[in-house]
Amino acid sequence: VSKLITEALSVSQERVGMSLVALKKALAAAGYDVEKNNSRIKLSLKSLVNKGILVQTRGTGASGSFKLS
């Protein structure tokens, strides 16, 4: 899941990052079952932020906008 998230964010052209909703849409378009794996998406977002791979530009927790650091 982390690999899919970083790939989706690297393609994004948004300056402020990608919102959680837009990220879920991009994952669904890539063929990932978002409804079934919603908790996995949130956990991997939090772990990527803690590792310093992603930066959360808006919001708290697993909601808001994210971009690559």
Score class of each variant (00 low, 15 high):
residue 33 D to W: 15
residue 26 A to N: 03
residue 44 S to Y: 05
residue 12 S to E: 03
residue 10 S to Q: 07
residue 5 I to D: 00
residue 44 S to I: 06
residue 64 G to N: 04
residue 6 T to A: 02
residue 51 K to F: 02
residue 19 S to Q: 07
residue 8 A to V: 09
residue 46 K to R: 11
residue 5 I to S: 00
residue 19 S to K: 12
residue 25 K to A: 06
residue 34 V to T: 11
residue 9 L to I: 14
residue 55 V to N: 09
residue 26 A to R: 03
residue 49 V to G: 01
residue 36 K to Y: 04
residue 6 T to M: 09
residue 8 A to R: 04
residue 19 S to P: 04
residue 50 N to C: 04
residue 66 F to N: 09
residue 46 K to S: 04
residue 47 S to F: 03
residue 38 N to K: 09
residue 8 A to M: 07
residue 63 S to G: 14
residue 28 A to F: 06
residue 30 A to S: 10
residue 65 S to K: 11
residue 51 K to W: 02
residue 39 S to M: 06
residue 40 R to G: 04
residue 47 S to W: 08
residue 63 S to M: 12
residue 13 Q to S: 06
residue 69 S to D: 07
residue 35 E to T: 11
residue 34 V to I: 09
residue 34 V to F: 07
residue 29 A to C: 10
residue 31 G to K: 13
residue 67 K to P: 06
residue 34 V to Q: 05
residue 27 L to M: 07
residue 63 S to R: 08
residue 53 I to E: 13
residue 41 I to K: 02
residue 48 L to D: 03
residue 36 K to I: 01
residue 51 K to A: 07
residue 59 G to V: 10
residue 7 E to R: 13
residue 50 N to I: 03
residue 23 L to R: 00
residue 12 S to H: 04
residue 5 I to K: 01
residue 17 G to E: 13
residue 19 S to L: 09
residue 20 L to Y: 13
residue 53 I to C: 08
residue 23 L to I: 10
residue 15 R to T: 14
residue 44 S to H: 08
residue 6 T to L: 06
residue 64 G to I: 15
residue 16 V to C: 15
residue 61 G to V: 07
residue 63 S to T: 13
residue 15 R to N: 14
residue 54 L to I: 15
residue 34 V to C: 07
residue 39 S to H: 10
residue 33 D to K: 09
residue 22 A to H: 08
residue 23 L to C: 04
residue 36 K to N: 12
residue 21 V to F: 08
residue 60 T to V: 12
residue 32 Y to S: 08
residue 63 S to I: 11
residue 54 L to H: 04
residue 5 I to M: 04
residue 6 T to Q: 13
residue 26 A to D: 00
residue 55 V to W: 05
residue 33 D to G: 02
residue 60 T to G: 12
residue 17 G to C: 07
residue 2 S to P: 02
residue 40 R to D: 15
residue 30 A to P: 04
residue 15 R to A: 07
residue 46 K to M: 06
residue 57 T to K: 12
residue 6 T to Y: 05
residue 43 L to N: 15
residue 69 S to L: 08
residue 67 K to A: 12
residue 27 L to N: 00
residue 38 N to P: 07
residue 20 L to G: 03
residue 6 T to V: 08
residue 12 S to Y: 02
residue 66 F to D: 14
